[in-house]
């Protein structure tokens, strides 16, 4: 296959990517910026596909195109739609002066210099033969990793420690959001058409999440993509004005939040007790353990992203245990 023929394709794709990035940052209208950013994410997903990085493309499709957009849109200031004056800080008006223009030029120049230097260094790096020691080591050890998708093998076995910390980052974020206290007000009940969308979209998203979780072992996919998809289901539910969006309350919620890190740690420490290295799975068990960890991680990721969208701790209006139980039963989805 001749790659030069993809040159036009690449050129246009990259042009769109840069154009969207630029446009999304050139405007002062928050809403416009966010929509452009969503478009940017969509195009990026295609670019990742083009570069044979389907794992990343999946993540980008779930996050860049979907969830980030939803998150950002929810944070767009509600008071002054489309106004460029988004800061309530009166001092800002001052700075619309010559000094600001100079500063802008300076920063632009600096960033251009950065781009140039980075490009210079990158070209140097690319001009030598690619370093193949590590990829080879990965493929040589793939059999022992318990999965056949090398990306999953890296994420959950070779560099599982990174992933453990990554889950800790997620947990931190959600705890931070919790500590901010309140949820944003819910949305109005949506019209019947939207409801119609939700009725088929949510089950399909749940199914897709399951699929991605499973497929991660031998093909692109995995806990994160699955979790994001699951969270997307919750986001849609929330948008229809439902107060129950599949998130449990109280203790159960905390368990789900902690599940990713918790199970990971539990596995790692158990192995340590059994005389193996921390997070060193026995090859025979690796596949099963990875699936276990990924399942827990998926739940945590979904809960985190969803809570991020909700913007805080779900109101716990538990009056008594019975009501609580009732709610739990109602909210299993």
């Amino acid at each position: 296959m001749n790659t030069t023929n993809l040159l036009v394709f690449d050129g246009l794709l990259l042009f769109s990517i840069v154009g969207l990035a630029w446009a999304s940052l050139a405007t002062t209208d928050e809403r416009r910026s966010v929509i452009l950013f969503m478009a940017f994410g969509l195009v990026l997903a295609v670019a990742w596909g083009r570069l044979l990085a389907p794992d990343v493309a999946l993540a980008e499709a779930a996050i860049g195109a979907g969830l980030s957009g939803a998150l950002l849109l929810a944070a767009v200031r509600k008071q002054s739609p489309g106004s460029s004056h988004t800061h309530a800080n009166p001092d800002r008006n001052y700075s619309e002066s010559g000094a600001k223009v100079v500063l802008q030029w300076l920063v632009t120049l600096l960033c251009a210099a950065l781009a140039g230097t980075l490009a210079w260094a990158l070209l140097h790096a690319l001009s030598s033969a690619p370093h193949d020691t590590l990829p080879r080591a990965i493929s040589d050890n793939l059999v022992a990793s318990g999965v056949s998708n090398p990306v999953t093998a890296v994420l959950l076995n070779f560099r599982a420690y990174d992933t453990l910390l990554e889950l800790a980052v997620l947990l931190t974020a959600v705890l931070g959001i919790f500590s901010l206290g309140q949820t944003t007000p819910g949305y109005q009940p949506a019209g019947p058409v939207f409801d119609g969308l939700v009725r088929w979209l949510v089950p399909v998203l749940i199914l897709t999440a399951g699929y991605l979780l499973w497929v991660g072992a031998h093909a692109p996919g995995g806990a994160f993509q699955a979790g994001a998809t699951l969270a997307a289901a919750g986001v849609v539910l929330r948008l229809t004005g439902r107060s129950r969006i599949g998130l449990p309350d109280g203790f159960v919620l905390r368990i789900i939040m902690a599940a990713g890190v918790g199970v990971f740690l539990l596995v790692g420490l158990t192995l340590l007790l059994l005389g193996r290295p921390f997070l060193g799975y026995p090859p025979a068990w690796a596949g099963a353990l990875i699936l276990l960890i990924e399942t827990a991680a998926m739940l945590s990721i979904a809960a985190t992203l969803l809570l991020a969208f909700v913007g805080g701790q779900p109101q716990s209006t538990a009056v008594n245990a019975a009501a609580n139980r009732q709610r739990e039963e109602n909210s299993r989805c």
């Binding site: 993540a59 998150l71 950002l72």
Partner: peptide
């Protein structure tokens, strides 16, 4: 990406 999303979520909150 996960890390960036977490940070973004916290920042937005």
């Amino acid at each position: 990406i996960v890390v960036a999303v977490s940070a973004t979520a916290l920042a937005l909150a």
